[in-house]
Amino acid sequence: MDIFQTIVLALIQGLSEFLPISSSAHLILVPKLTHWTDQGLGFDVVVHMGTLSAVIFYYQAMIKSLSFDFYHSIIKRQTIGQSKLAWGVLLGTIPVGLAGVLFKDSIASDLRSVEIIAYATLVFGVLLGFASWFNHRNKSPRSTVSWVDIAFVGMMQTLALIPGSSRSGITITACMLVGLSRKLSIQFSFLLSIPVISLSLILILIDLYHQAQLVNVSLLALGFVVSAISAYVTIVFFIKLIDTVGMMPFVFYRLTLGVFLLLLIL
């Protein structure tokens, strides 16, 4: 990898991790379409660390509050403040964590084709559009999560293991389908990204431990900085953009990309 490739791939990770367009699909597609060599596990680690640091920094005050309520809910054995949301982040991660561990090898070998990415991009784009329409028509969206919401969103998040589905896209879709407000849907989705990215980092580090790879420290540092900054800007931009234009621009993008990929492989 050279500096240009490092910046491009780090930008892709940072920009697409929290947008409902699938970062994994774009990180697979760009090297394939440009015939770049594989970026390596070391690079995957640092760019994931960059996006993780961005979302933690953005939600640092809320994370402190949720941690406080979570701790006291255990001590007092009752719901305290936003402790249910904190439990939701924890419990909602279990299904995708188990599925990721159990099917990691088959996902890596069987689901990374351009054809699967194309169909997943289209199908989940349509589903996102329907959820956005449903949310717009909902006159009384809820501002709190229930245990049923947590279970449904957690199960739906397992679909994010399919490249092209988008973890943020499928969780936001699930939240809006159960009637949560758009603000809470985005908030819950982004908070769910913290343990999910952390788990994916652990799995990548395990694979990296068993592989001897030469790394360019300066390029890895550049990748971390670019992914962290671009991810933070994306979070701020996305939250503000959704308030004005909604989800439809991302739905149109997904449909356009999906059709382009299908035409590419025909």
Rank of each mutant, 00 (worst) to 15 (best):
I107L: 14
I3E: 09
G81D: 11
M155E: 02
E17N: 05
L19E: 02
V259W: 02
L122W: 07
P195C: 12
R167K: 13
M155C: 14
S53M: 13
S140K: 15
I80H: 07
L262R: 02
A99V: 12
P195K: 13
H35D: 12
K64R: 14
T37I: 02
A86D: 11
L184H: 08
S16I: 02
L91Y: 13
I170Y: 09
I242S: 02
F134N: 09
Q39I: 02
A131Y: 01
I21N: 01
E17M: 07
S67A: 15
L192I: 12
A228C: 14
V45M: 05
Q82C: 03
L52Y: 08
Y58G: 08
L52I: 10
G50L: 06
I242A: 00
V123T: 12
F190K: 08
G88Q: 07
S146K: 11
G88H: 06
L29Q: 00
L66I: 04
L127C: 05
F134M: 06
L91I: 15
A120D: 09
I75R: 15
T79N: 10
T79P: 00
G92K: 09
L208D: 04
S230M: 07
Q157N: 08
G223K: 07
S109P: 00
L85M: 11
L9R: 02
S166Q: 10
S166M: 09
F4N: 02
T158I: 13
G42K: 04
I235S: 06
L180G: 09
T34V: 06
S16G: 00
G164R: 05
A151P: 00
F4G: 00
A221M: 14
I56K: 11
F252D: 05
I116L: 13
L29I: 04
G169Q: 11
R167S: 14
D243T: 12
L263D: 05
V226R: 03
Q13S: 03
A10T: 07
L262G: 04
T244F: 03
L90P: 03
I94W: 12
T37K: 14
L52K: 13
G246R: 06
P163W: 03
G40I: 03
H210Y: 13
A99R: 12
L222N: 00
L41H: 02
V89I: 15
L208N: 11
H35L: 05
S22T: 06
G100H: 12
G125A: 09
T173L: 12
L191H: 11
M176L: 15
M62Q: 14
L261K: 04
F252N: 11
Q213S: 14
T173Y: 02
S53K: 09
D44V: 01
K240E: 10
I12F: 01
P31S: 04
G246C: 01
L257C: 06
F190R: 07
L98H: 07
W147D: 05
K139V: 06
S143N: 15
T34D: 00
G97C: 09
L199P: 01
F103L: 15
G125E: 05
I239L: 12
L192V: 09
L266D: 07
L257M: 13
Y209H: 15
Y71V: 15
I56W: 08
D44K: 03
L264E: 07
V8A: 09
L90S: 10
G42C: 03
K104F: 04
G42I: 01
V46F: 03
V217I: 13
T244Q: 11
M248P: 00
H136V: 05
F252Q: 08
W87L: 07
